[in-house]
């Protein structure tokens, strides 16, 4: 079955704005920021939002493990059932939610590829809060492209990428797409 959101036919690439090395460096920086902001690794849980937040969360957790020497609990969150556009968009194929058992009192760092309207993050908040009562929720994204529709901001950003509403941003990750890259492009006929 085709990956949801990767039909590709309505996306015309204009430029590659991040390459593999850029992504690696950005994630390493985010990993350090997370530990620094948390004053260590205590209580940290890294949770990626499916689909492309999940491998990013794994990479950040691996980074932290490499320089802090601790294996942080990490997992993946499917927010399909919490979205506010169910019925407008069509049912998504559900993927497993593999969030570590106990979130109470922990600091959950949500990881996603692109921060755009903020609606996915809102859904993720609700999903996390149904699973437990964390002490805090933080947000890390690889790309922030602006155009927020909800009062949400990221704590850690790999790259700020101002875009117009006629543009689209795609993140490719080796685990899913066979390469690491951030692309900017035009939505063909996507408006109206």
């Amino acid at each position: 079955m085709a990956q949801p959101g990767r039909k590709g036919d309505d996306f015309a690439v204009k430029a590659r704005v991040m390459e593999s090395d850029d992504i690696r460096r950005a994630l390493t920086r985010i990993a350090h920021e997370i530990v620094e902001a948390n004053k260590g690794t205590d209580d940290l849980v890294i949770v990626g939002i499916r689909t492309r937040g999940a491998p990013l969360a794994d990479r950040i957790a691996a980074d932290i493990a490499s320089f802090e020497g601790v294996d942080l609990p990490s997992g993946a969150l499917d927010v399909s059932l919490y979205r506010d556009d169910v019925g407008l968009r069509g049912p998504r194929n559900l993927e497993a939610t593999t969030v570590p058992a106990d979130l109470d009192g922990r600091v959950v760092v949500l990881v996603d590829d692109v921060l755009f309207t903020g609606r996915t993050i809102r859904a993720a908040f609700e999903a996390i809060l149904d699973l437990g009562r964390p002490k805090a929720i933080k947000l890390a994204v690889l790309v922030d492209r602006g155009h927020r529709e909800l009062p949400i901001r990221a704590d850690h950003v790999g790259k700020n990428l101002p875009t117009s509403s006629g543009e689209d941003v795609r993140v490719h990750l080796t685990e899913i797409d066979g390469e690491d890259a951030v692309l900017i492009g035009r939505k063909d006929g996507g408006v109206g």
């Binding site: 949801p4 069509g90 049912p91």
Partner: peptide, 14 residues
């Protein structure tokens, strides 16, 4: 119920 009421077509993620 989710698959049938979840909408008409496959959609995109933003």
């Amino acid at each position: 119920l989710y698959l049938m009421l979840g909408g008409a077509e496959e959609g995109d993620v933003s």
